[in-house]
Amino acid sequence: MFAPDRPVHFTRQSPSVHNGLKGLRLLCISAMAWAVSGCSLLQTESFNFQAELPENFTISATTYYDAASGESCPGHKVIKSDQPKGTQLIELKLPLTEKVKGCSRVLKSVVLNIEGQWGKRDLDIGLQRGALSIRDEPTETTRPFPASGPLVFLGQCQWFFRTMGPYRYIVKVLECRALDANGVVQKSLMGGSMLRDGLAGRTVKLVLTEAKEDQPYFGRSWLETPKGWKPCIETKETFRCQNPPTFTDFKMPDGRDCTVYPNCTE
């Protein structure tokens, strides 16, 4: 508050000072407008990718770009989910365009990196890949978008078991293939191709399932019995089980000596 017994003095600004402050305000406003417009120019189109996964599986995406205007500036980036490990519905936002050092790039393909955990140890994992291709023109294999909802690709992962090393420890190999609309496993990897036109803002979903039973990686070296799979000694000429078969033993990852997989003992 002002003291009542003391006069208040106001200083009148000169025109030059007034004009200078006005210009400074305009400069600040222009700078803020430029910043907002600059941010909007850097915004890129994108689409949503979802993956419905089995337990103990996770997924990341590697996006590959080509120059949009004939320049030489291809590139790629790895996009991982920030959701907790073990989440069975993963969601990623994948940019369709980006600008790097003045070079405009467009998305050409997405490699899907699948990781499955088959055992308790950190190294008990299997790796597999799938792919999504973005086309500018339709082809025989290009999938059209439905009128509503996501574009869905189906896949199935199969674990193959085998023995490794002088003590014949069981390890597993992962293989993931596409499924057709009837659920039949295809030779191709998971994924497919889709049109760029209309992709922005839409959702692409991979529904991945896991085969119920493991299969032998070297099928000719194992015989299926009512108790399970039994490993046999192979002939040197054909690498098939001897006739009549002579069986051998193996070890589970936890060190147990076994004669049949997966039950260990008959």
Results as ranks from 00 to 15, higher is better:
121 R>V: 06
135 R>F: 03
188 S>M: 03
120 K>E: 14
139 T>M: 00
146 P>I: 05
129 R>K: 12
151 L>I: 10
182 N>Q: 15
148 S>W: 00
200 A>P: 04
164 M>V: 15
170 I>H: 02
174 L>Y: 11
187 K>H: 08
200 A>R: 06
156 Q>L: 09
149 G>W: 08
121 R>I: 09
103 C>W: 01
178 A>N: 07
162 R>F: 12
145 F>Q: 00
165 G>A: 09
167 Y>L: 15
198 G>N: 09
200 A>H: 07
196 R>W: 04
176 C>Y: 00
142 T>D: 08
144 P>E: 07
118 W>I: 13
159 W>S: 04
187 K>C: 06
168 R>T: 12
123 L>G: 12
168 R>Y: 14
174 L>A: 15
190 M>N: 04
193 S>P: 05
170 I>V: 15
164 M>P: 00
141 T>Q: 10
191 G>E: 02
191 G>W: 02
104 S>N: 13
196 R>I: 01
134 I>F: 06
111 V>E: 11
163 T>K: 04
154 L>T: 07
203 T>I: 13
200 A>L: 01
146 P>H: 11
167 Y>M: 15
122 D>M: 01
173 V>S: 14
141 T>K: 11
132 L>N: 10
159 W>N: 11
203 T>W: 08
195 L>Q: 06
136 D>W: 06
106 V>C: 08
202 R>C: 10
194 M>G: 01
146 P>S: 10
109 S>M: 10
184 V>Y: 06
116 G>F: 00
134 I>K: 03
121 R>G: 06
164 M>I: 14
174 L>C: 11
152 V>N: 13
135 R>W: 04
167 Y>A: 15
130 G>P: 10
173 V>T: 15
160 F>T: 13
203 T>F: 05
129 R>F: 14
103 C>K: 06
202 R>S: 12
186 Q>D: 07
200 A>N: 09
172 K>Y: 11
195 L>M: 01
110 V>E: 02
188 S>H: 03
160 F>V: 07
167 Y>C: 13
127 L>R: 13
105 R>L: 08
191 G>H: 03
188 S>P: 03
189 L>S: 14
156 Q>K: 04
183 G>K: 05
117 Q>S: 13
178 A>K: 11
175 E>M: 13
103 C>G: 03
201 G>S: 09
134 I>N: 01
199 L>W: 02
109 S>L: 06
117 Q>E: 11
135 R>E: 14
190 M>C: 07
165 G>Y: 09
102 G>W: 00
121 R>F: 11
117 Q>K: 15
151 L>V: 13
125 I>Y: 00
203 T>M: 04
183 G>L: 07
131 A>C: 06
195 L>K: 01
185 V>F: 00
109 S>D: 04
179 L>A: 09
107 L>Q: 06
131 A>R: 09
114 I>S: 05
176 C>S: 03
149 G>Q: 05
135 R>K: 10
111 V>G: 07
136 D>Q: 02
132 L>E: 07
166 P>M: 01
114 I>E: 11
154 L>E: 11
179 L>V: 00
169 Y>A: 12
116 G>R: 09
140 E>H: 02
160 F>S: 14
112 L>Q: 01
184 V>D: 14
181 A>I: 04
178 A>E: 03
129 R>V: 15
191 G>M: 01
174 L>F: 13
